[in-house]
């Protein structure tokens, strides 16, 4: 029978780096990554799962990390915004966000980039409608999204 516990040793790989920590069962993945692992690129913009600022790719799947417990991610491979650029070299998508002024305050940007990254992996040439649909779970309060659509589209085509 599996153990029932209020805290647990958790091993995760984040952006290729393995971490092992003892975690309270109640801790959300987003808090674990931000507070315990000090990877503060992913953000928190709501407390109801609406905003997507906390979006990460967990075992290949885009999720909002504020609705996942850290203990649920035990053994998982996690990708966050910090893992996109290599050696400070922006990905085409990151560069496109800058080129198209798809970010203002930049608070939504990490989540937005993860959602767009997930989209482009499965659909390298998305239509406008597919882009909107793919970003539906990420709120941006600064840009009105239009430039974000353009940025994603430019990478696609």
């Amino acid at each position: 029978m599996s153990a029932i516990a209020s805290s647990k040793a958790v091993t995760v790989t984040v952006n290729g780096v393995e971490y092992e920590r003892e975690v309270e069962a109640r801790k959300l993945l987003i808090h674990f990554v931000r507070d315990d692992l000090d990877l503060t690129g992913s953000h928190i913009g709501c407390d109801t799962g609406n905003c997507g600022a906390c979006s990460m790719i967990v075992d290949g799947q885009l999720v909002k990390s504020c609705m996942l417990l850290a203990v649920q991610a035990d053994g998982a491979s996690i990708e966050t915004v910090e893992g996109l650029a290599e050696d400070g070299e922006l990905t085409a998508l990151q560069q496109s966000f800058s080129d198209h002024h798809a970010l203002q305050c930049g608070y939504c940007t990490p989540g937005m980039l993860m959602s767009a990254t997930a989209l482009l992996r499965t659909n390298p040439n998305p239509t406008d409608e597919q882009i909107k649909k793919a970003l539906q779970g990420n709120i941006c309060r600064c840009t009105g999204y239009w430039n974000i659509f353009e940025a994603v589209k430019a990478v696609g085509s």
Binding site: M1, S2, A3, I4, A5, S6, K8, E24, A25, R26, K27, L28, H31, I44, D47, C66, L69, V71, Q72
Partner: peptide, 13 residues
């Protein structure tokens, strides 16, 4: 955002 204490189990079946 902050949950009350809770125990967690991940059953195999």
């Amino acid at each position: 955002m902050l949950l009350r204490e809770v125990e967690y189990a991940r059953p195999a079946s």
